[in-house]
Design a binder for these strands. Sequence first.
DNA 1: CAGTGATGCTAGCACTGCTAGTCATTCTGT
DNA 2: ACAGAATGACTAGCAGTGCTAGCATCACTG
Lengths: 194, 194
Amino acid sequence: MSIQTRRERERAERERLIVTAARELAEAEGWDAVTTRRLAAEIEYSQPVLYSHFKGKDAIMAAVAVQGFEELSGQLHAARTSAPSPREALAAVGRAYADFGERRPALYDAMFTLAVDLPFARPETPAPLRAAFDELRLAVTPLATGDDDPGVLTETVWSGLHGLLTLMRSGRLRRDQHDRRLALLIDRFCPPEK
Amino acid sequence: MSIQTRRERERAERERLIVTAARELAEAEGWDAVTTRRLAAEIEYSQPVLYSHFKGKDAIMAAVAVQGFEELSGQLHAARTSAPSPREALAAVGRAYADFGERRPALYDAMFTLAVDLPFARPETPAPLRAAFDELRLAVTPLATGDDDPGVLTETVWSGLHGLLTLMRSGRLRRDQHDRRLALLIDRFCPPEK
DNA sequence: CAGTGATGCTAGCACTGCTAGTCATTCTGT
DNA sequence: ACAGAATGACTAGCAGTGCTAGCATCACTG
């Protein structure tokens, strides 16, 4: 029994090792540098070992993405709960989201642009994904007006943030205007001040 | 002289053939199906011919993207000018933009997510790109309030639309709520009704 | 101690974007 | 009109990709 469990433990550990190595390599040199050969060399195992843990490269990226969601939800939570008002909470969460995308571009891509085999907005959505989305929702809903559906509203704000990030990161938006765009977006999703 | 010009004409024609073939192949089967071998077979020339016209695959995709911008700006223009009021013009342009992204996903990706060697928001930005952005700006600016900078405002609306499209198309947003999100986004960028 | 199953390995497949070098065709200068 | 130059498309190949079949070695069981 003990041997079995040790095996499983070692196996789980190696799986974590793979995910961590993939993540670090991606953050350091971008996803293009994360090839199965390179990753195998990094963990000091042969290439096919990866496939005994994951179905393929996509699955490894999905696992990295889940780690990313954990980190993101933590940062959104911190930003939200340390703001004095709902208005400032939304602004802080928006900034935290944008900062995350800027500081961890590879991670962000795995979460929001590349890997597709993660189920979003579904019953089987992994917990970290839910948690991150919930943080956003908790920041958005206090500012909902009238008959806005909280889910739809949150998705729309999220889309705005995502669009700002991706278009800027791909060189399609002027970087020096980023803060103004971000402030403008958030402002438009706050009810008019009285 | 005439022979020279005929040569150049044939060459230009073949270049158009390449771009068209790449575009049609991408629209039919996605960019993954557009390999240099496949594309060469499609135009009934050998592979290296592509490299006598374009620096590489990216350049071909960029050329396809430029075609996409021409089409997009035409559709945005039609939507904008056939609307009776600025408010409805913006809504129509938003819908036209979203429709374009839905109907021509491969083209949209070449324009807004993949190819990077196109200069955006710069002095040397190709005309079709400018035209498309201008259409958006012409729809957005009439609804600007106070001290909004038109350029920044347009970029922000654009980002919102882009985020909605990309997140939905990658399966991260519920498809059935698309219209509500789009309406909500547009609404937030219209000044409060009197 | 022989047999059995798990496990990580080497080798290789089919494919990618891209390029070097060859060869036929066409144009140029005398 | 003909030798020489140059253009241009081709075949073949390189270095790399994700992934897999099959083998050899090891740890454990009866």
